[in-house]
């Protein structure tokens, strides 16, 4: 009983406390680099598209708002032919970023993406792909993967021995 009254009194006293609201948009809040806002697709340090169209982000997405189609360049480098995120469905949970094996998909601290038409919330690859590495500077998936792509032959990845000479019978 007393605690109820005290609660009421305590809450009443808040009438004289300072307000914590940040008056957005006049005032801006600080959002950390790892804040989960608008999603981008980044590039690897060599400037190539990082996304290898593995579909893992799409599978991880709890609201299924990522769709893409894989394709390959003539040298066997896989990339998404198109990549679509329906931001009107996205809940910015960041699971896609967690799932991505190449650091391609990243959430950014930009949250200002309201639109008058819901249709405008559908982002295609050209709206997503940026010209930088985003939060993860050094990584290049193709340097550790075993497949060869243009400019990197078999055995040229990190920690790879040169291709086996099949004509040798030495063990």
């Amino acid at each position: 009983m007393f605690s109820i009254l005290r609660t009421i009194w305590d809450v009443f006293l808040h009438a004289f406390a300072k307000r914590v609201t940040i008056q957005y948009p006049e005032q801006k809040a600080y959002l950390a680099a790892r804040y989960r806002g608008r999603i981008i697709l980044s590039r690897d340090p060599d400037g190539g598209e990082r996304c290898v169209a593995c579909y893992l982000c799409a599978a991880a997405c709890p609201v299924d708002c990522i769709a893409l189609q894989a394709t390959e360049d003539p040298n066997g480098r896989r990339y998404p032919e198109w990549f679509r995120i329906n931001f009107s469905r996205c809940i910015f949970c960041g699971l896609c970023e967690d799932a991505c094996p190449t650091y391609a998909i990243q959430l950014t601290p930009d949250t200002e993406m309201s639109e008058y038409r819901r249709q405008d919330m559908v982002y295609e690859k050209e709206n997503l792909l940026i010209d930088g590495v985003g939060k993860y500077p050094g990584y290049n998936f193709w340097r550790v993967a075993g497949v060869n792509i243009g400019g990197k032959d078999k055995g040229e990845s990190e920690r790879e021995a040169p291709p086996v000479d099949l004509h040798s019978l030495l063990p």
Binding site: F12, H14, A15, A17, R19, V20, T21, Q23
Partner: peptide, 8 residues
């Protein structure tokens, strides 16, 4: 409610 919850 805002007042008592330190909002506007």
């Amino acid at each position: 409610l805002g007042l008592w919850q330190d909002r506007y």
